[in-house]
């Protein structure tokens, strides 16, 4: 078939093509991801026992995590369509990660030397590196399903954005369990866990975005 004939065929009986509705599906994917992560948390991990009196640090940690999602979600939706790279948004997101680590360093600087290790590591292995990605998975699945319906052309970056967006959601939920409230701990390990989610997204989620 000649290209001119193909063009002719594609233009025949043309229907108007209104922009896809993405607001509703996006809200649904995020709500479902958040809901499933909450159920997973309550069922398998449990809330921190003092959640009633620790609302303040929990909200601070959830808010910090939400910041990453707030930047990564619009970036994801931008990368879901062919066009510019979304460079500015990507830069702000990376800057937020770097700023988090700088805050951690500053907070540790202010600690007494003997208390530094505990403030940084929270007195054990930072389980958030494992649990945040797990709690992020439901959101990531929903976002991949949504982005697939559009036309992403930079799959690795789009996958990373999905990872960061869902990592933020996972971290919000994880904050309800996480017993460590030190600033250095949260800004280091939450940021690294969300970065880890972005890396997994770049490698794994991107594979499911092909069209």
């Amino acid at each position: 078939m000649k290209t001119d004939d193909l063009i002719e065929a594609l233009s025949r009986k043309l229907e108007p093509a209104p922009p896809p509705k993405t607001g509703g599906p996006l809200a649904a994917a995020l709500a479902a991801g958040l809901g499933v992560a909450l159920i997973l948390l309550v069922t398998f991990i449990g809330m921190r026992p003092d959640i009633g009196t620790a609302m303040m640090p929990v909200m601070m940690k959830a808010g910090f995590s939400a910041l990453f999602s707030a930047l990564a979600i619009p970036l994801t939706m931008r990368l879901a369509r062919p066009g510019p790279k979304g460079g500015r948004m990507l830069q702000i997101l990376v800057a937020l990660g770097v700023a988090s680590l700088a805050i951690a360093a500053a907070a540790l600087w202010g600690e007494k030397p003997e208390a530094r290790m505990h403030a940084w590591m929270g007195g054990g292995f930072p389980w958030c590196l494992v649990l945040i990605p797990l709690l992020a998975t439901p959101t990531a699945i929903g976002l991949v399903m949504l982005v697939r319906t559009l036309a992403p052309t930079r799959l690795t970056t789009a996958g990373a954005a999905i990872g960061a967006a869902s990592g933020g959601v996972g971290a919000m939920v994880y904050a309800m369990y996480c017993p460590v409230d030190s600033v250095a701990f949260v800004t280091t390990w939450y940021a690294l866990a969300i970065g880890f989610c972005a890396a997994i997204g770049a490698v794994v989620a991107s594979r499911f975005l092909r069209w």
Partner: peptide
């Protein structure tokens, strides 16, 4: 074309 104009789309 997005608005449904076939000639423009062609």
């Amino acid at each position: 074309g997005l608005a449904g104009d076939a000639a423009a789309h062609r």
